[in-house]
Write a protein that binds this DNA or RNA. Structure first.
Lengths: 337, 337
DNA sequence: CTGAAAGCGCTTACAG
DNA sequence: CTGAAAGCGCTTACAG
C-alpha cells in the first residue's frame, strides 16, 4: 500500500497538519520540519493524492477542456494556445472527449456534475440556447470557444463573415459560378458559412444554386476530412457546366480537393478555411481563424472568471481574414483581401 | 451549494447507502427506492462527485494518457485508436500533457503519484531504462507506446527498420547520394532512424556522409514541423553536389520539404515517415506506422493488465511498411516495397 | 510555528 | 432489500 500523510507524519515526527502545510506551501513551517518531511516523503515517494486533496479543499487547480473530436486540426491549434497560457499559470489541464455516439447534452452535464475541474472550456460544442441556459445552474466558470451564448463568456470567429469574404473575393476576381464544398449542413459552423456564402452571391447579383453546395462523405467528423473534400471536389469537377471557383469549408477538406483536381488534371481556384499550419506549405488560400490566439485568450478569460466569478460576461468575436496564396492564383488573376 | 448524497437521501426518504447503490448499480435496490432516488436526483441535478467516489472506493475508472506534445499528428492518430477501443469499454479518458519546460522524469513521477487514474499509457515518452525501472515501484498498470522498456508492456514500431526500408528502396532505385532530413538528434526515434539510414547505406556499399544529415529549426517540437522540413530541404537543394534523393523523418516535415522543392523549382524523390492521413492526399511516399492499431491494441493491453496485474509483460513491435506514392515516382523510376 | 479535531462526500462491509 | 457506521486521505480553522 502506498504511503499516506499519516505515515509521513509519523516518520518525520510531526503532525499531519505540518505535512500538509509543507506540500501546500501554506502557513508557516520551520525549515527543520520542512526538511524532515521532504526527506521522508522523498524516501518513500510520497505525494498527496489528488482525490483526497480535491475533496478536502474543494478545489483542485484543474481546468477541463471539452471537445467533440480531439483528432482535429482546428482543435489542436486552439489547444496550443491554451497551453501557451497555462504554462505561465499553475493550473493542470484535463481534456474530456465527447463521444459522438452518446447524447451530447447528457455528456456535457455529466462532465460538469462530476466536478473534476474548477473551470471548463468548451470547444466547438454546439448546443441550443436553452440547453446552455440550463447549464448555468451549475454555477461554475465556463468559457465557450467557437460557439456563442450570451450567458457565458465566449470567444469565436464570425463564420458568416469569413465565408462572405472568401466568396466575395472570388466574385471580385471575376468568377461567377462558385461552388461551396460543404460538410454536414446541420452543423452550426456550416450553417453560418453557408449564410455568408449566400449573402456574398446575393450582393453580387448572383443567384444561389442549391446544386453548387456539394459534400462528400459526412459520416466521419461531420465531413471535415480529406476524404470528404476529395469526394466532393470530384463531383464538382464532373458538373456541367463546371463551377469556375470553389469555397471550401475547411483547409483539411481543401487538401483532399487539391488532390482531386490534380488527379483529374483540372484546376479551379479554391479558398479554404482555418489557416492551419499546413495551409502555408500547401500554397492554400484560406480564411484565417486566429486559433492560437483564441485558445490563449479564452484561457486567460476563464482564469479571470475563476478568480472573480461575478465579473461581467463578455463575448469576443474575431474577424476572419483572407489569406491569399497560390491556390487562387490562376488565370492570371489574384484574389485580394 | 450543490446537493450531496445526504440531501438526496433525505428528500428520497432513504439512507445514503441506498442512494450510493442506485448510482453504482450495485447491490440490490427495490424499484421503488431506485425510482424515488432517481427522481429526486434528477430534480436537483445531482451526481456523485468524482473525487469523493475516488477517495472512498479507491478507484475511478479512468485511464490516463501521458504525452509530450499533444498537438502532433502522430499522437492524434494514436489517440484515435485509443478512443476506438475505449468507446467499447466503460472507462474515462484523461490526457496529461508533459510540459517541455520542466523536467520530464519529475513530471512523469508526479502524474503517477497523484493517482488520478487506474492505468497509464505513455506515448512517445522516452526515458532511460533506469528511470523506467524506478517507476515500477508505484506498482500501477502502465503501457508504453512508441517506446520500449522490458519492465512494462509496450507497443512500438521498429524505427531502425523503417528507416532502413526507406533508404534501401531509394538505393535500389539507383539513387546513391541520399540525404536524411532529420530532427533533434538526441531524440530516440531519430537516433534509431539514423541507425537504419546508416545501415542501409553501408549494406549498399555507400559511405555515410555526416553532411547529408540535415535539419531545420529544432526549437519547436524537436524539429518535427513543416517549417523545419522546409528549411532543411532548402539547405539540401543548395548543396553541391545536390543529393539525388531524401529520406524525411516525418510526413509533416515532408510537407515542408515538398514546398521547398516547389519554390526552388527542383525536385528529388522523397520518402516520409508515419503515413498520416494527409500523406495519401499529398501523394507522399512514406513509411507506414500503424498508429491507429497501436493505440487500439495498447489500450486493450492496458485494460487487460488492470484486470490482471500479474499477467506476463509483453512487448509488441510492429514492422513498418513502405507505401509508394507519387513523391518517389521521378525520373521514370518507381520505388518498390 | 505546531497539533488536535472536524469535516469534505462518498463506498462498503456488516448486521439485520 | 436496507441502514448505521467506519473509513478513504486529505485541508483548515482554531487554539496554543
Amino acid at each position: 500500500m502506498a504511503a499516506t500523510i499519516y505515515d509521513i507524519a509519523k516518520k518525520a515526527g510531526v503532525s499531519i497538519a505540518t505535512v500538509s502545510r509543507v506540500f501546500n506551501n501554506s502557513g508557516k513551517v520551520s525549515d527543520k520540519a520542512r526538511d524532515k518531511v521532504l526527506k521522508v516523503a522523498n524516501e518513500v515517494g510520497y505525494h498527496p493524492q489528488a482525490f483526497a486533496q480535491g475533496l478536502a479543499s474543494r478545489k483542485n487547480n484543474t481546468i477541463m477542456v471539452v471537445v467533440p473530436v480531439i483528432s482535429n486540426y482546428f482543435f489542436m491549434e486552439i489547444l496550443g494556445g491554451i497551453q501557451d497560457k497555462l504554462s505561465e499559470k499553475n493550473y493542470e489541464l484535463s481534456i474530456f472527449n465527447i463521444s459522438p455516439n452518446k447524447d451530447l447534452k447528457k455528456q456535457v452535464e455529466h462532465v460538469l456534475k462530476r466536478r473534476l475541474a474548477e473551470g471548463y472550456m468548451f470547444i466547438s460544442v454546439h448546443l441550443e440556447d436553452k440547453d446552455w441556459k440550463s447549464l448555468q445552474k451549475y454555477n461554475v466558470p465556463i468559457t465557450l470557444i467557437d460557439e456563442y451564448f450570451e450567458g457565458f463568456d465566449s470567444v469565436s470567429v464570425d463564420n458568416s463573415q469569413g465565408a462572405y469574404r472568401a466568396v466575395k473575393a472570388l466574385v471580385d476576381c471575376g468568377y461567377n459560378r462558385i461552388a461551396m464544398l460543404g460538410a454536414l449542413q446541420t452543423s452550426k459552423p456550416i450553417r453560418d458559412r453557408l449564410e455568408g456564402y449566400k449573402k456574398a452571391l446575393e450582393e453580387s447579383g448572383l443567384e444561389y444554386d442549391e446544386s453548387l453546395f456539394v459534400t462528400g462523405d459526412l459520416t466521419n467528423r461531420d465531413g471535415f476530412t480529406e476524404r470528404a473534400g476529395f469526394e466532393a471536389m470530384k463531383k464538382i469537377l464532373e458538373m456541367d457546366p463546371m463551377p469556375d471557383a470553389c469555397f471550401c469549408s475547411s483547409d483539411i477538406q481543401a487538401v483532399g480537393a487539391l488532390k482531386a483536381m490534380q488527379d483529374a488534371g483540372k484546376r479551379i481556384p479554391i479558398i479554404g478555411y482555418d489557416d492551419i499550419e499546413l495551409a502555408e506549405y500547401m500554397g492554400l488560400s484560406t480564411i484565417r481563424q486566429p486559433m492560437r490566439e483564441m485558445g490563449f485568450y479564452a484561457t486567460q478569460n476563464l482564469i479571470d472568471r475563476m478568480n472573480n466569478p461575478t465579473k461581467a460576461v463578455s463575448q469576443t468575436i474575431y474577424t476572419p481574414k483572407l489569406i491569399s496564396r497560390n491556390s487562387t492564383a490562376l488565370n492570371g488573376r489574384k484574389v485580394k483581401a
